[in-house]
Structure formats: structure tokens, C-alpha cells
């Protein structure tokens, strides 16, 4: 990791110096990993990530630059936005994997739309269950079936994430065909997330029917 241009101390984040407190403006766009002082990796310790977010926030958050000049307040806004946006991406395994696949030259979402074969059949089944529940009255067996589906999908989500970890740890080399397989898993993950969101929305609607 680089040193502070102001005092020479070793940096934990390129956004600011923990020793002298100076806000640093990196010359180029930082990657999310760089922003939090991490090496690119799919595996990430959530506690360590949060610790780094909080430590860096205490340096760059605009709250701590409130009595400084307008220029420094704006610099703190920019640094804090970089930090939060980077953290948000890293904290979500799907977004993190997507970033790694793209950065390593793998196919994007629009370039490769395939999903694992077995998955396709299942997606059709989920949609049937969802459609039936949507048309059924609150409290009906069709609605109750959603809870089972949700549990099933959450388990599958864990499986897909584990599969992604097998493909992305250690990181494959740039342009590797493994990246294409990782993209297929990510596509599956997106379907799972969308379906789970729909189930959650239906559950909320059921809890407050008059709001629907």
C-alpha cells in the first residue's frame, strides 16, 4: 500500500491519511478493492470489510469536515461517496463477483445470457407458483406455498454462491473460460434474487392488503 503524500505514513485507504488526517485526492478512478485497501478477491471477511469501512469513514465522512472550508467539505463528500459506493459493491457477493468477472475480461450480462441447464426448468416452475399465488386470495394454500418456495430459493442461493467461490477462488487468469461459467452462475443468481424479491413483495402485500 502507498504512503501519504503529506506525511509519508503508510495508508490504509488511498482516500485519506490515518496519521495526519489529510484528505487525499487519487489521480485516477480507484477500484472498489483499492478504495478499501484490499487485494482483489472473491473471498472477503465481512467483519474485516466493515472494520475498514468504519475506520475510513472516521477519516473522510463530511461530518468531520463540517467546520472546514467549502473545498475540503466537497473533497470529503467525494471521498465518502467513493468509499460508500465501493463498500456497497463489495458487501454484496453477487455485485462483487460481477465486478471481478467483468474486470478479468469475462463476458458481461448482455454478452452471455446462459444459465446452468437444470436451472431453466426450475425457473418455469417458480413462475407458475408465483402466478398462482398472485391470483389466489391472501391466506390461500397457493399463498402459503410461497414460504416453502422462498426457503428453497434461499438454499439454492447459498449453493450458487458456493459454486461461484469454487470458480473464482483463487481468481482465474484474465480471459479464462472459467469466467464464462461464473457468468452463468451469476445469471442464475439474478433470477433467484428477482424471484425472492417478488415473493417478499407479495408477502408484504398480504400483511397490509388494503395498501395493495
Amino acid at each position: 500500500m502507498a504512503a501519504c503524500t503529506n506525511c509519508g505514513a503508510e495508508l490504509e485507504t488511498p482516500l485519506a491519511c490515518g496519521a495526519c488526517g489529510k484528505l487525499l485526492e487519487p489521480a485516477r478512478e480507484l477500484t472498489p478493492f483499492e478504495t478499501l485497501g484490499l487485494e482483489p478477491s472473491f473471498e472477503l471477511d465481512a467483519r474485516e470489510l466493515r472494520r475498514r469501512l468504519l475506520r475510513a469513514s472516521r477519516l473522510v465522512h463530511p461530518d468531520f469536515h463540517g467546520s472546514s472550508g467549502a473545498g475540503e467539505r466537497e473533497a470529503a463528500e467525494r471521498a465518502s461517496a467513493r468509499l460508500n459506493s465501493a463498500h456497497e459493491l463489495l458487501a454484496d457477493p453477487a455485485a462483487r463477483a460481477d465486478w471481478l468477472v467483468r474486470t478479468l475480461g469475462g463476458p458481461s450480462e448482455s454478452e452471455q445470457r446462459q444459465m446452468p441447464q437444470a436451472f431453466l426448468m426450475e425457473v418455469l416452475e417458480w413462475n407458475e407458483t408465483l402466478d398462482a399465488a398472485r391470483e389466489a386470495a391472501p391466506g390461500s394454500p397457493e399463498r402459503a406455498a410461497l414460504a416453502g418456495l422462498a426457503t428453497n430459493l434461499r438454499e439454492q442461493r447459498e449453493d450458487v454462491l458456493a459454486g461461484l467461490a469454487r470458480l473464482l477462488v483463487p481468481l482465474p487468469p484474465k480471459g479464462s473460460p472459467t469466467l464464462s461459467r461464473a457468468r452463468a452462475q451469476l445469471n442464475a443468481l439474478r433470477y433467484l434474487a428477482t424471484t425472492l424479491a417478488q415473493i417478499d413483495a407479495l408477502a408484504l402485500e398480504q400483511a397490509s392488503p388494503h395498501e395493495a
Binding site: P62, N84, S85, E88
Partner: peptide, 8 residues
């Protein structure tokens, strides 16, 4: 519910 400040 994104933490602010943030950007895109």
C-alpha cells in the same frame, strides 16, 4: 437505503 454520501 444506500448509505450517503454516495454516487453513481
Amino acid at each position: 437505503n444506500s448509505t450517503i454520501p454516495c454516487h453513481a
